[in-house]
Design a binder for these strands. Structure first.
Lengths: 191, 191
DNA sequence: AAGACATACGGAACACGGTTCCGCTTTTCA
DNA sequence: TGAAAAGCGGAACCGTGTTCCGTATGTCTT
């Protein structure tokens, strides 16, 4: 039943795979240089391909962003349970994990903004980040509230949205996203 | 030195003033219908003028936004001292005032996003909102910290930035800006 | 009342970025 | 080695913001 599906539908072409890798590298570089909203033409030029090739491999910008940052998001997700084990208290683990997430976001110029965009093209981005990270956050929240350290029934999705929002414009000199996130974490505590 | 500057430079034309008012009304309507990023051509059409006329009266979108919302921003600014007088404690006044600001922001589709944009054209918007509201916020913060209710040295500008950020996307069904703002307010409290 | 002149107007034209589409090239497979 | 499939490039198109200039309108003077 698995495998020989009506005669192996011909594997992906070698040049195609090469282009996809070139595109990922080019996009990563462009994102660092000009943020995640770098013009499509720029990314194509960096990779030495035509714009059509970008759309063939990554139909929406969100797909490209997800592909570029997948590893880092995975790492963040996996850090959750580890922190829970290694930290003194669940609240400490939650705080550490959130700071990890914030560190990731603030170093990606424009990512937080993109996460927030209601542009349909970013639906994928939204879905991926949230599907992957919200459960981790929920687990940490649950542990902390069970331990009686924080308010009960905090919704992980809302919290992640909010944290993401606070990271917008984090590179402005007269703003301090980490400070604001710290206030939120403090606000979660039962007093 | 003041007044008669080289012989009265001819007053503004009547049609010009008429257009300006029509533009303000059209913009207000367009903002309600499609958010503060309503296409320039739409606003012009609603007002029954050409696009050039918009740019002549309001060189940047920020100027238009400021003009449309000036009254409401003023009201919010003036409410600060009043709340300080009428509330039980400075922290309560601060909380009420922030909620007032949040109410204003979340009812203006896209305003919070615009406030955050680093597009130079929004510099005016940024400047106006912040110049008008930050001092009020600072006064409230100062009263509350003097009363020993909240952490000392909280920067009003950072707080306003953060609150504004939290209001981005407030109309999404699975987000709750007010809840997040509440956490920040709670986080300010000394425990 | 009429002429002269500044003021303001409209909207065509341009700039820019995303997205689509199709003729051509490259790779794969037999 | 020669189809046929897969993939490619980039011209062309669309929607927005922005500029510019020939024309129209209001205002002031005589």
């Amino acid at each position: 039943m698995t495998g020989t599906e009506s005669g192996a539908p011909r594997k992906q072409r070698a040049d195609s795979r090469r282009n996809e890798r070139a595109l990922l590298e080019a996009a990563a570089a462009a994102f660092v240089a000009s943020g995640v909203n770098a013009p499509v033409r720029d990314i194509a030029a960096r990779a030495g391909v035509g714009v059509g090739t970008i759309y063939r491999h990554f139909p929406t910008r969100a797909d490209l962003i997800v592909a570029v940052y997948r590893h880092q998001v995975e790492a963040c997700a996996e850090a959750g349970p580890v922190l829970l084990t290694e930290s003194a208290t669940p609240h400490a683990a939650l705080a550490s994990w959130i700071h990890l997430f914030v560190d990731f976001l603030v170093t990606k110029h424009g990512l937080a903004e993109a996460m927030r965009s209601d542009d349909g093209a970013f639906q994928t981005l939204h879905a991926y980040f949230l599907d992957r990270l919200v459960p981790v956050c929920a687990e940490l929240l649950d542990a902390a509230s069970t331990a009686g350290e924080i308010i009960p029934d905090m919704d992980a999705l809302v919290l992640m949205h909010g944290i993401g929002n606070l990271c917008i414009g984090a590179d402005s000199p007269d703003y301090d996203a980490r400070l604001m996130v710290g206030l939120v974490i403090a606000g979660l505590r039962l007093r």
